[in-house]
Nucleic acid binder design. Sequence first.
DNA 1: TTGTTAAACGGAGGGTGCCTCCGTATCTTC
DNA 2: GAAGATACGGAGGCACCCTCCGTTTAACAA
Lengths: 210, 210
Amino acid sequence: MDDHTDQIRKPRADAVRNRERVLEAAKAVFNAGGPEASLEAVAKRAGVGIGTLYRHFPTREALFEAVYRREVEQLSELAEQLKNAKDPVAALRRWLHSGVEFVATKKGMMAALALAVQSGSELHAFSFDRLTKAIGSLLDRAVAAGGMRADISPEDLLRAFFGMCYVHDQAGWQATALRLLDVFIDGLRVRPKIKERAARRTSPAAKRKR
Amino acid sequence: MDDHTDQIRKPRADAVRNRERVLEAAKAVFNAGGPEASLEAVAKRAGVGIGTLYRHFPTREALFEAVYRREVEQLSELAEQLKNAKDPVAALRRWLHSGVEFVATKKGMMAALALAVQSGSELHAFSFDRLTKAIGSLLDRAVAAGGMRADISPEDLLRAFFGMCYVHDQAGWQATALRLLDVFIDGLRVRPKIKERAARRTSPAAKRKR
DNA sequence: TTGTTAAACGGAGGGTGCCTCCGTATCTTC
DNA sequence: GAAGATACGGAGGCACCCTCCGTTTAACAA
C-alpha cells in the first residue's frame, strides 16, 4: 500500500460541462420560479438526468449556495469598498440598501440568504461567513468611530436584515424594507449631534400612506 | 321557487365533533412537528379520513388560522390592556416582547404569523387585521404622546417583528430577537431626553458574546 | 318507529416531487 | 486500442398533496 503516486486524473470533461449546465439551468429556474422550483425541472432544463444533478449537488442547499455564491461575493466586495467611506454609519446603511437591491433582483436570493441566516447545523455555509465578515467590518468601523452601539453582533444584524426583507414578494416591499432598515440603523446609533441628524433627515424616509 | 322557509337544519353532530378533533390533532401536531408536518398525519391522529380534514379546512392555511386563532386573540387582548399603561413606548416594547414569548412557546406560531405577514392575496387573514389593529393602537398612542416617529405603519412594524423572530429555531434566538426589537424601538423613538435614556439602559440589553 | 334525504365520511387514486441505486455509457490513461 | 475509473440517466420506492365519489349516518317528518 504505497508507491503509486496519488496523481489525480484530469477531471472528466463531461462532468465539468454538466456541472456548468446544471448551474446555469438552476440560476434561470430559481430566478424565475422562486426557490420552490423542482429540482427535476432544473435537471430537465439542463438536459441532464436527475441523478447527475444530485451527484454534483447532493442537496438543494448545495445547489443554492453554488448558484448564489457570486452574488454573495459581490455583496461582500461592496462592503470591502465601503470600508473606506468617510462616514461609516452611512456606509453600513448603503450596504444594507444594496442588499435590498440584490434581493429585489434575484428571486431566489432570499432562499439563499435564508440558508446563511439559519446557518442550521455544522456546515456553516460559505455565505454565512462571508456576509458576517462583511457586516462585521462595517460594523466595527462604525463602532470604533463612536457612531454606533457595540452590543449588536454581525450575526444579529444579518438576521435583522434578512427579517426586514422577508416580505420580498409583496408589492412595495422594497420601500418598506428600506424604511425599516433605516429605523433600525437609527436605533443602532449612539445619539448623534442634533445638526447631523437633521441633515440626514432630508434624504431617505418614504412618506407614510395612512 | 318560494315558500319553503329556509330553516336551517341543526348541524350534524359528527361534523361538529370531527372538526373539533381535527383542530385538536392539528394543534398537537403543529406544536410538536412544526409547520411542515403532513396533513395526513393530522388526519390520522384525529382519527378521521383525509377527506374529512379537507372538507373542514380546505387549505393548510385555513387550518393554521383556526389553530392559532386563539393565540392571536390573546396577543391582541394583551395589546388592549397595555393601552392603558402610562408609558406608551414601554407598552409597545412589552407587547413585542410578549410576542417573542408566544413564538417561543408555540412551535407552529411562526408559520401562522407568516400567513398574517404575507397577507398574500385577497383573503386578508383574520390574524393580519387583528394584529395590525393591536399594533396600531399601541403605535398611535406612542406617536400621540410624542414619543415616537409617525412614519411607520402598523403593518411595517408587524413585518419587522416577524422578521426579527425569523430564526426562531436557533439556540438563543430569543435573546437575539429581544435585542433586535429593542434596537428597533430605539430607532422609532423620537430622540429622548438624555436622563431617560440612560435610565432605560440599565435593564434590557444582553451582553454581547464576541 | 320508520322512511327520506341532505350532509358528512373516508380513502382510493392520480399527480408531483424527492432521492437512491445501479446497469450502462463515456472519458482518461497507458 | 484496451482497461479501468468515473460519470450518466432514469426507473422505482417513498411521502405528500388534493379531489372525487360511492357509502354511511344523522336530522327531520310522518
